[in-house]
């Protein structure tokens, strides 16, 4: 579904991502792991159109995404849940959800889909008319995932969805990711929580210093090997 070929991302003269190639197939969960500054978020930024592609190509089912603005990429079926939650704080939960669906043309289905997300994330129903800024961190994370899902993406990009959450809420986030896979959604997951990611992902790519240093299917990466990769001791 998604093919990234020889991706380069630059911030001025600093190259944050070098020659990264990866693939995500239909219905897969693919993890993108690596320590801080590895280039994970920059890779997602380039795929989602938030950052310009300095080199290489990004293709979604053969269609070129690089060079297109972020909003058009969303319309083509790629939704990003950015790191740090980013709810629209002074708008209500209801408005946050409604905005997520405004890119869609099938408006008749929106109310039904909002209802489905409220069933999935029951806490959002309770605070439906409250301002999103009043929700706790975990509730906000559920809201931004629900909001992204309301655009009916073909590919969901999740950037550090468990960052800063308590262990109980991390469980909830990963349960949700499993549930979305069961529904057939394709997910590219950027995480620092490597042990949880290798459990849930079909395949994982590991980045370090902006370069791809490992690629392995589920079960091929042990926690020890991951530790080595993070620390720079081993490469595959």
């Amino acid at each position: 579904m998604l093919r990234v070929e020889g991706l380069d991302v630059q911030y001025g003269r600093i190259r944050a991502v070098r020659d990264v190639s990866l693939e995500v197939s239909q219905g897969e969960i693919v993890g993108l792991l690596g320590p801080n500054g590895a280039g994970k978020t920059s890779t997602l930024g380039a795929v989602s159109g938030r950052l310009p592609v300095a080199g290489g190509r990004v293709l979604l089912e053969g269609e070129q995404l690089d060079g297109r603005p972020a909003e058009e990429i969303v319309r083509r079926g790629v939704s990003l849940v950015p790191e740090g939650r980013h709810v629209f704080a002074t708008l209500t939960v209801a408005e946050n959800l409604a905005i997520g669906a405004t890119v869609r043309k099938d408006r008749a289905q929106v109310a039904e889909d909002i209802e489905r997300q409220l069933e999935r994330f029951s806490v959002l129903r309770r605070y439906y008319r409250s301002n999103a800024g009043k929700l706790s961190g975990g509730e906000q994370q559920q809201l931004v995932i629900a909001r992204a899902l309301l655009s009916r993406p073909r590919l969901l990009l999740l950037d550090e969805p468990s960052l800063g959450l308590s262990p109980l809420l991390v469980d909830l986030v990963f349960e949700t990711i499993e549930q979305l896979r069961a529904e057939g959604l394709t997910i590219l997951l950027v995480e620092q929580n490597a042990s949880r990611t290798v459990e849930v992902a079909d395949r994982c790519y590991v980045l370090r210093g902006g370069e791809l240093v490992a690629h392995a299917p589920r079960g091929d990466l042990s926690p020890e090997e991951l530790g080595d990769i993070y620390l720079g001791a081993g490469e595959r």
Binding site: E71, R75, L80, F88, V103, V144, A148
Partner: peptide, 8 residues
Amino acid sequence: VAARAIGV
């Protein structure tokens, strides 16, 4: 940032 990420 978030608005652009959902297609605004």
